[in-house]
Amino acid sequence: MNIFRLTGDLSHLAAIIILLLKIWKTRSCAGISGKSQILFALVFTSRYLDLLTSFISLYNTTMKVIYIGCAYATVYLIYAKFKATYDGNHDTFRVEFLVVPVGGLAFLVNHDFSPLEILWTFSIYLESVAILPQLFMISKTGEAETITTHYLFFLGLYRALYLINWIWRFYFEGFFDMIAIVAGVVQTILYCDFFYLYVTKGEGRSQLSIPT
């Protein structure tokens, strides 16, 4: 494992923990897209089914369990514990427009036409667009709390670091996975507009808006 992969994983973990703590500490999930969080729970579930079939390392298993656990905990906080604070009226992105095409694509373009591999591919494709309901919500309300922008920053940074990891692996290990790379590039591009705003107006501002 190289440093970019490790910092990518830690950045991903930071994003997940930041969001969980924010909701827990403020007892509110205002401004958070429950739909994006359901999609991420679906992403982790469909990708980490190999927990049941193969063991790779203690690190690998631990991180997967934490990711899945946190994803469902977040969904639980939004849709059950702090449901009253959930801003459903602004969380109106039609997720079927993501899940259905992504599901179709996973059937058509994959490494191996087997259930686990199709589900893995589905999770890779879905992850690349899973943040769209959240970005849509921010563009609709015209603002995001600072802590939400930190969450988005670390979530975007994670896939950007993975891109560098894949370049590294290609040069030093001769390894590349075209499905993960293309989806990872798409995923990172979706955050570019946000990254720009985060860097240029993030510091010292309490709110950040994404133009529609």
């Binding site: 494992m1 992969r5 994983d9 991903h12 190999d50 193969s54 790779i56 390392s57 690998n60 991180m63 997967k64 990711y67 490494h111 191996d112 591999e117 893995w120 993975y162 990891n165 390894f175 996975d177 993960a180």
Partner: peptide
């Protein structure tokens, strides 16, 4: 393409 190598990533 080695699937086990790929699944090492999260």
């Amino acid at each position: 393409d080695d699937p086990s190598q790929k699944k090492d990533e999260l």
